[in-house]
């Protein structure tokens, strides 16, 4: 999974998200693996942060100025 997340070009297919999701599913089902080996936790966090950084999109005119009538809920 780390290898998948480390490759730059694959995100178009959502593969990296799926890789992280697979690890999270494992964590949800067998948390003991991660609790017993906290290096895994740190690596999963690093992968997640790397994914967030990689997918963060810069400001666009559309984002900065939503058109009239566009509704976006508050912070919830």
């Amino acid at each position: 999974m780390q290898k998948i997340c480390g490759v730059k070009e694959v995100e178009e297919d959502g593969i990296k998200q799926m890789a992280i999701q697979a690890l999270i599913s494992m964590l949800e089902r067998i948390p003991k693996i991660y609790k017993d080996n906290q290096t895994y936790l740190k690596e999963l966090l690093e992968m997640t942060f790397a994914y967030m950084i990689e997918t963060a999109e810069d400001t666009t005119q559309e984002w900065a100025n939503p058109k009239e009538g566009d509704y976006l809920p508050g912070i919830i």
Binding site: Q17, L27, K35, L45, Y51, T55, E57, W63, P73
Partner: peptide, 22 residues
């Protein structure tokens, strides 16, 4: 509604799940 920040939102959700479980 954060379609343009989907990756960041996904990551935030992952972190939330991790804290909740561990």
């Amino acid at each position: 509604d954060e379609s343009d920040n989907a990756g960041v939102k996904f990551g935030s959700h992952v972190i939330d799940r991790m804290i909740a479980i561990i």
